[in-house]
């Protein structure tokens, strides 16, 4: 295993830790809003780390740019989706 492999896999493992944190948060946190904190923030960083690790393993500029695009699209849709769910939950409550 080269240094590049170790770095890539290491970053991806760290990414899965954040995905796990997001899932634990969904199960543990008391209400819909707090759960959204866990999903939007932790999963977003988890995906960023997995994309970064994959880019390091791929060692290819185009693949890296593609993974970056995927991350941006999911980060934006995650933030907007989280906001829409929160708004709906809030208006339902009141």
């Amino acid at each position: 295993m080269s240094v590049q492999d170790i770095m890539g896999v290491g970053i991806m493992v760290l990414g899965t830790v954040f995905f796990l944190a997001g899932t634990v948060g969904i199960l543990r946190f008391p209400d819909a809003f707090s759960r959204l904190h866990a999903v939007t923030k932790a999963d977003n960083l988890g995906l960023a780390l997995i994309a970064l690790g994959t880019s390091i393993l791929a060692a290819d500029g185009f693949t890296a740019a593609k993974l970056f695009l995927i991350w941006i699209l999911i980060a934006v849709s995650g933030a907007i989706g989280g906001h829409l769910i929160a708004r709906h939950a809030l208006r339902d409550k009141s």
Partner: peptide
């Protein structure tokens, strides 16, 4: 933000007060 929320999720004694 992600580290903060991950620590809260993993800390078994942490009680959220949103």
């Amino acid at each position: 933000g992600a580290i903060d929320v991950a620590l809260r999720a993993f800390n078994p004694w942490h009680i959220l007060q949103p």
